[in-house]
Every structure is written in C-alpha cells, then in structure tokens.
Write a protein that binds this DNA or RNA. Structure first.
Length: 109
DNA sequence: CTCTTGACTGAGG
DNA sequence: GCCTCAGCCAAGA
C-alpha cells in the first residue's frame, strides 16, 4: 500500500476493491481502516467515482446494512440484484444476516 | 479563504 | 424501535 501517494478517494477504492465475493462492509468500517473514522461520509462520496474503477460499490452499505446508495446506481434495484447474485439476501434495501456477510478490512485485510 | 454538499454515525427524545 | 439533531471531514465552486 502506498499511503500518502494515494488520495483519500483512492484509498477508499483500494479497500473497496478488496471486498471478497459475497461479503459487504460499511462506510464507517472502511473509514476507520483508513484512519478517518469520522469521514464515513467521504467514503460514500468517493464511491461516486466508483464507476469504471472496478470498485464493487454495491458491497458497501451503511452501518445498518441498508442500501442507502442504491439511488446512485443505474436503476432502482440494480444494487440489490448485484448483492443477491452474490448470495447476499436483501429485502427492502436491507441486507439480511448482515453480521454474517459483514467484512471488516482491519480484521481480514 | 469561505460556503455548500454528502452513498455516514452516534446520541437524544 | 423510529425520528430528529448535530458533529465530522474532504472536495468542489
């Protein structure tokens, strides 16, 4: 990892790209891993440029496991469909068994 | 430099 | 358990 050579956004992309298949994480978890636990909002904001960056933004949700960022995707249920395609159950924008599929970078990365 | 915005989070009612 | 308020921080205008 090249720390200062990468911007905050880039760091977020790096971590997001490392999210394993069938797993999800929260903005706060990523922010905390980057040492910016108070910048969880920035993490989501950074995901705006996730398109074309190999960043599985659909695997990143808020701390409640809620697909808050689904509105930033193409349609309305695209994000949910992607998660379900990975074996993650999603009901009403809410990830089921969130704790089970949760992936903490500081622990597993 | 100042102000606004935002895919968040935690605390309080 | 749900709703509201406030704090936080970085980037863009």
């Amino acid at each position: 990892m090249q720390p200062e050579t990468l911007n905050f956004f880039d760091k977020v992309y790096q971590v997001a790209k490392c999210i394993p298949y069938g797993r999800v994480t929260s903005y706060g978890a990523i922010a905390s891993y980057l040492g910016a636990s108070r910048s969880a909002r920035m993490v989501g904001y950074a995901m705006n440029g996730s398109v074309g960056k190999e960043v599985p933004a659909h695997r990143v949700v808020n701390r409640k496991g809620l697909l808050t960022g689904k509105h930033h995707f193409d349609g309305t249920n695209l994000m949910q469909q992607l998660l379900e395609s990975e074996g993650i159950k999603v009901v009403d924008n809410q990830i089921q068994d969130f704790e089970t599929v949760f992936w903490e970078p500081s622990k597993e990365l």
